[in-house]
């Protein structure tokens, strides 16, 4: 893992150092705020009536990009989200003799907080010049998620590597500002489980939930080029 990160870092630095990209009128850097909407694909448990949680999860991202050639940009992102997800918790049944069946599955909402740090590449189609135009992107992020249930006191955290493929379009709305609209497909590459509370299988339900829910991101962004 360290080798991979190191390789990416060296590649990025060398691209920045040696490339002569035109950017937008000579401006090759852009800092951008992206607002992602993640529509849920998972169904809500029937037992949970009219929850306050949103059907949509929102993800906020800060994005620093550098155009390294006429058709390619590299970028670093930091993003995060807060929300609630439906899930299952195994709750221990007191005085139950059979050690195998002394857990009961209950449904609840988990509050979660997510932080993501990533690196990606945008490839602009040949008729465009980065950072303007239609692009495809590929990215890798390290995602840390913490979650807990108020009702049952269960809490956990996971760290995964998320892969992203997406398409979008960036256009300048003035000499210095751009807008970005697009969508992406995301999936988890690694899902280590870290149990914080041995009375639950909280993590597995959280993983399932995230896996189903965090697939399609719709994005709108506003950036400043310099």
């Amino acid at each position: 893992m360290k080798k991979a990160i190191l390789s990416i870092a060296i590649l990025s630095i060398s691209l920045i150092s040696f490339a002569q990209a035109p950017g937008f009128m000579g401006k090759t850097w852009a800092i951008k705020y992206d607002f992602h909407i993640i529509p849920s694909l998972s169904s809500f448990p029937n037992s949970l009536e009219n929850p306050n949680s949103s059907f949509l999860t929102m993800f906020h991202e800060l994005n620093l990009s550098k155009d390294v050639s006429t058709n390619m940009s590299i970028y670093f992102t930091y993003g995060g989200s807060k929300g609630e997800r439906p899930g299952h918790i195994l709750v221990e049944i007191p005085d139950y003799q059979d050690s195998y069946d002394n857990y009961s599955e209950v449904e609840d909402y988990f509050h979660h907080t997510q932080h993501a740090l990533g690196f990606g590449l945008r490839f602009f189609r040949s008729k465009w010049l980065a950072p303007v135009g239609v692009y495809s992107q590929v990215a890798v992020s390290f995602v840390s998620t913490r979650a807990f249930s108020d009702n049952y006191g269960a809490k956990t955290s996971t760290t995964t590597i998320k892969g992203t493929f997406g398409i979008g379009a960036q256009r300048m709305i003035s000499e210095s500002f751009l807008i970005d609209i697009g969508y992406s497909v995301n999936f988890n590459l690694v899902s280590p489980l870290v149990l914080l509370d041995d009375k639950t299988d909280f993590n597995s339900t959280l993983q399932r939930s995230m896996f189903l829910k965090d697939i399609f991101y719709l994005k709108i962004g506003l950036g400043f080029v310099f």
């Binding site: 035109p22 937008f24 009128m25 000579g26 008729k127 256009r171 300048m172």
Partner: peptide, 25 residues
């Protein structure tokens, strides 16, 4: 030579800049 979208001033700008930059640098 490049095909560009007719309404895209930003594309026109960035292409003009790019080609003049190649001449100058």
């Amino acid at each position: 030579r490049k095909e560009i979208s007719a309404s895209a001033k930003d594309v026109l700008k960035s292409n003009l800049y790019y080609v003049f930059m190649q001449l100058y640098r």
